[in-house]
């Protein structure tokens, strides 16, 4: 990518980066920042969508990636100046990437930025704006980059949110982009890797709701109870158990009775008591009383439930 210093800005009257009156939380702006922001402001006001404007956004993002207006303007520019920059590319990220069109400068920048600053809010929003809704490859590319981020940070909230968003969009606009059965199988494998990863459990529930034909209450019950048996203090698994049983469209009373029977064996565990208090037909107040003993910091709340 051509750096901003290689463009001619002699026609631009730079703006002075103002100091806050009273110097409240004053920032000692570095000279370099003042120069770049000073050029950016008039170009932004003039809505100049050009290569040199793009180069300035790149420099400002390097200096401080948290300016929403810089990212938004960048998107306007990329969208306006043509498909050669706008084309989405993933080649070069990984040898296992599926065959894709050649890499563009913006695509490369976006991918490298995603991998190095995956907790930045703006980058995920920017990726979502770029999505070509009717291109299956694009959806798979997004899933690929999400998995690359999750390799380093398996609970990255932004990455998981993005994946869910991408899948939701694909259902509407490119239903062939993903194989739902494969997505669920991959999710099962992720649970075996780390059964305490709440993001994976939430993702599993999302998959069942997005592709209702995948939702087999008996299969889910079998899977989640096996995971609870191996790690009874896992909040994510207990919540998931409640989640699938409370889903009116797919659950059955037989499934709930069987889960309650299962949970009776774990009464030392507050999470099991919470589950029983909400799902058992009998002894509900006993479970709340036991919770009041086991979780003294919330004693008054649990005791109030006994009274109800």
């Amino acid at each position: 990518m051509k750096p901003w210093t290689e463009f001619d800005f002699s026609d631009v009257v730079p703006e002075h980066v103002a100091e806050i009156p009273g110097h409240l939380a004053q920032i000692a702006y570095p000279e370099h920042f003042k120069t770049v922001m000073g050029l950016f402001l008039p170009i932004y006001k003039a809505k100049e969508r050009s290569e040199r404007a793009l180069a300035l956004t790149y420099e400002l993002i390097e200096l401080n990636p948290a300016y929403y207006f810089v990212w938004d303007f960048r998107f306007e520019i990329v969208r306006a100046i043509g498909s050669d920059v706008f084309d989405y590319k993933l080649v070069g990220l990984t040898p296992s990437a599926p065959a894709q069109p050649e890499t563009s400068e913006d695509g490369e920048f976006v991918n490298q930025f995603t991998l190095s600053k995956s907790k930045n809010y703006q980058i995920w929003n920017y990726r979502a704006l770029l999505l070509d809704r009717h291109n299956e490859l694009w959806y798979r590319g997004e899933k690929l980059i999400v998995s690359m981020v999750l390799e380093d940070d398996a609970k990255n909230f932004h990455a998981w949110s993005h994946l869910r968003w991408v899948i939701t969009q694909s259902v509407k606009h490119a239903p062939q982009a993903f194989d739902a059965v494969q997505l669920l199988a991959d999710c099962t494998a992720l649970l075996l890797e780390d059964v305490f990863n709440n993001s994976v459990w939430a993702y599993r529930f999302f998959l069942l709701k997005t592709y209702p034909s995948l939702f087999d209450i008996d299969e889910e019950l079998k899977l989640v109870t096996a995971h609870i048996a191996s790690a009874p203090s896992n909040e994510s698994a207990w919540s998931y158990l409640s989640g699938v049983l409370d889903d009116k469209a797919s659950s059955t009373t037989a499934a709930t009775s069987s889960a309650v029977q299962f949970a009776l064996a774990f009464q030392d565990e507050p999470l099991a008591l919470q589950f029983l208090a909400e799902h058992a037909q009998e002894n509900v107040s006993t479970y709340y009383s036991l919770l009041a003993e086991k979780e003294p910091f919330a004693k008054s709340f649990w005791l109030a439930q006994v009274a109800e």
Partner: peptide
Amino acid sequence: VLTLAPLRVDA
């Protein structure tokens, strides 16, 4: 902080 803030605060 009200006296002097770092650049990242600007956004």
